[in-house]
Amino acid sequence: MLMALQNFNPGAMLDTIVSLTAAFVCGALIGLERQVRQRTAGLRTNTLVAVGAAVFVDLAVRLAGPEMATRVVAYVVSGVGFLGAGAIMKEGANITGLNTAATLWGSAAVGACAGASMIGEAGIATLFVIAANTLLRPVVNRINRRPVNDESAEATYYVYAICHRSAQGDVREQMLDMLEAASYPVRGVETHAFGPQDTEIEAMLYATSVDAAELDRVITSIEAVPGVLQAFWNAGTDDS
């Protein structure tokens, strides 16, 4: 009790209230835009991230000064990175949630500014985060609606084989050997359940361009492997 009374500082307490209030308002503004668009991390999540970051930074400043605050900011960045990773989901070749994770990162930056009593900077950062999620959206939509220029677009190619589950080990090994022999090395392989008894094997190729006729011949060879029900390939633009 005595320690609590000794640490009570009305001036410092007022500064903390201002910092946390700023973090709350800025985080809520960012989260409101996300909530309206029904994103995974909405109003409460972004507000909590901003306030949490502000609390940690403000606490570090109170306990050990600005030098410790810079260390805490580094830990906040890495900690929010783990939180953002939970918002990223992979479904086959598609990845979603990257923008949500980036927004959480922005909310943490806003909170860190507020916790360091840089209220103006926190407000400016908030405007930029909201602008990135709103003003750039029409630009992104317009670009996405444009037809892809095959000469300039970088594509990733995938080879698929659907086989009996009991044969997936042999099919996978022979599939990789055939692609390697055709000078199409595989960057990654995933397997997915395909019905109650079958498996889909997905191989992502390193190559950014292929000879369609040559790859068709490889597909024909894969289909001849015992246990394979169907084989095919397709291409998608690389968003990395």
Rank of each mutant, 00 (worst) to 15 (best):
G106C: 02
A116N: 06
T100G: 01
D170F: 03
A213N: 13
N141F: 15
G86K: 09
L5W: 12
A74W: 04
T208K: 06
F232S: 14
G111H: 00
P185D: 05
I124E: 07
E121W: 01
V77K: 01
Q6C: 05
N7G: 08
V61I: 00
T134I: 14
V77C: 02
R34T: 10
A212R: 12
G42R: 06
G106R: 00
I30F: 14
D216L: 13
F194D: 13
Q230F: 15
A41W: 05
A224C: 10
T237P: 11
G11N: 08
T199V: 07
A161M: 14
N234E: 08
P10N: 05
V77M: 03
E121N: 02
N94G: 07
N133D: 12
L32A: 04
G86P: 11
V218K: 09
V139K: 06
A87T: 12
A114V: 13
N46Q: 12
Y206Q: 03
A41R: 04
G111C: 02
V73D: 07
T47I: 13
A28Y: 10
K90L: 00
E202R: 10
A74E: 12
L14G: 10
S19M: 14
T237G: 09
T40Y: 00
D239Y: 09
E154N: 09
T191C: 04
V57K: 00
S240M: 10
L179S: 13
V77T: 02
E214D: 14
F128L: 15
G79E: 05
I88Q: 04
G52F: 06
S183N: 05
V210K: 01
Q230C: 15
A155W: 03
G106D: 01
T191I: 04
I201P: 08
Q230E: 15
L63V: 12
M175R: 02
V55C: 01
V110M: 00
Q174F: 00
S19Q: 13
A87K: 10
A207C: 09
Y184M: 03
S78D: 06
A182S: 14
V36C: 15
E173C: 02
H192G: 09
S183C: 05
R217D: 14
E121Q: 02
S183I: 07
S209T: 08
I119E: 01
A4R: 10
D15H: 06
A85Y: 04
G195R: 07
A213F: 08
M175P: 01
V55I: 03
Q230H: 15
V77L: 01
G27M: 07
G195W: 08
I95T: 04
L98C: 03
V55D: 01
Q35F: 11
S209L: 05
T21F: 08
K90W: 01
D239H: 14
Y160P: 07
I30S: 15
L48N: 10
L29I: 09
V110L: 04
A54T: 06
M118Y: 10
A60M: 00
A114H: 07
T199I: 05
V225A: 02
G52R: 02
P185F: 05
M178E: 06
G11C: 08
L179M: 12
V61Q: 00
I222H: 02
G195P: 11
Y158E: 11
E202V: 15
E200Y: 11
T126I: 06
A60W: 00
V76F: 07
T191P: 01
L179A: 15
L48M: 14
